[in-house]
């Protein structure tokens, strides 16, 4: 049952084993390339940065899946929209100081994307709410195609830039510790992940509407009998997922170059992270996201960057086959529901 924040005996041994095997393998491969410890730390830090974004995306998948049973393919497009709207507003000629303009741009990115999420749910998911899983998957794919094509028209096929939060310029401040570099934006990303995690915890555990959302995830029919409107909860879930995606896209913006089709691969990675975490637990998918980011980056670092995405899909299939409930224990609902 999805309980979002239930304290569960985390299978530390299992994770430790996997991490140990992967570390030994990457050390062996890395020694062929004469990697120093700094190289590894750098790879792991970069992996944690990417992993934080995957975690934010995976939370969006979890919220929508738990409440509605839908795998929302458009999750990646929310990330793209968040970043794109933010950089467009930031590029506008507003009578504001750069810092205030950035804040306005971030707010606009999150709010507009949330609005798009709500619109998507009302216009496409709600009318088809009684359809089969395949139909609903194809519907979210249709929305994905539409959003991506609209983004191509609005923002063109070229990558854009979003200024770094610290410097409000293209050049970010970089901290150096020995041979290891950390961009200030990485710190923003980690801080955002932590804040979002706390906010989500408070929202789901301490507020009435959050509790209603959880009730809906546990048992939709029972929740309905208790006077909770499942259609409203479905809308809320999509709004939340869109907001989470937009935040991810905005904090990621300065370290990548946002482009209209960035949602595809990000969405898939976010989904892999969600699967690692078991699809129904928020802390689970955060660990899943970070783990995926690190593994992927290490694997790409010690072998060939081209195999980066192969690694994540091999992990995906391996976990689906060995532990479909995710490596952190978790959802018994998942395999039976659909």
């Amino acid at each position: 049952m999805p309980r979002f924040f239930q304290r569960r005996p985390v299978r530390i041994i299992g994770i430790a084993l996997i991490v140990a095997v992967l570390l030994i393998a990457s050390l062996a491969l890395g020694s062929l390339k004469h990697y120093s410890p700094q190289n590894y730390i750098q790879l792991i830090l970069d992996g944690l940065r990417a992993g934080s974004i995957y975690a934010l995306m995976a939370m969006g998948f979890v919220v929508v899946y738990s409440v509605t049973g839908i795998i929302n393919f458009a999750q990646g497009e929310f990330v793209m929209l968040g970043a794109m709207i933010c950089l467009s507003v930031d590029a506008m000629n507003l009578p504001l100081s750069p810092a205030l303009k950035m804040i306005a741009a971030i707010a606009a990115g999150v709010l507009l994307t949330t609005g798009i999420g709500i619109l998507m749910e009302r216009l496409t998911i709600y009318p088809a709410r009684r359809s089969s899983a395949v139909t609903l998957i194809i519907i979210t794919i249709g929305v994905t195609i539409t959003l991506r094509a609209a983004a191509l028209l609005i923002w063109g096929a070229d990558p854009h830039v979003l200024p770094a939060f610290t410097t409000l310029a293209l050049e970010d401040r970089i901290f150096r510790f020995g041979g290891v570099m950390i961009q200030a934006q990485s710190l923003w990303i980690w801080a955002t992940l932590a804040v979002i995690l706390i906010l989500l915890y408070v929202f789901l555990q301490r507020t009435l509407i959050g509790k209603a959302l959880r009730a809906c995830a546990v048992n939709r029919r029972a929740a309905q009998l208790m006077g909770i409107n499942p259609s409203r909860m479905s809308m809320l879930a999509f709004a939340l997922a869109a907001a989470l995606g937009a935040v991810g896209g905005i904090v990621l913006g300065p370290v990548t170059r946002p482009i209209y089709d960035m949602g595809v691969m990000l969405g898939l990675r976010g989904f892999v992270a969600a699967i690692i975490g078991g699809l129904v637990s928020v802390p689970g998918v955060v660990v899943g996201g970070l783990l995926l980011g690190v593994i992927e980056n290490l694997a790409a670092g010690v072998t060939d960057p081209a195999f980066k995405s192969v690694v994540s899909f091999i992990i995906l299939i391996a976990i689906l086959l060995l532990r479909p409930q995710g490596i952190l224990g978790g959802g018994e609902k998942s395999t039976e529901e659909l």
């Binding site: 899946y65 899983a133 995405s309 998942s334 659909l338």
Partner: peptide, 21 residues
């Protein structure tokens, strides 16, 4: 052995691996 969405994602991963390789 997988079902529903899980099977969908496993096959998706398989297709991706073939495509990248």
């Amino acid at each position: 052995r997988l079902k529903g969405n899980y099977l969908a994602m496993a096959t998706l991963g398989l297709g991706f691996i073939i495509n990248i390789v």
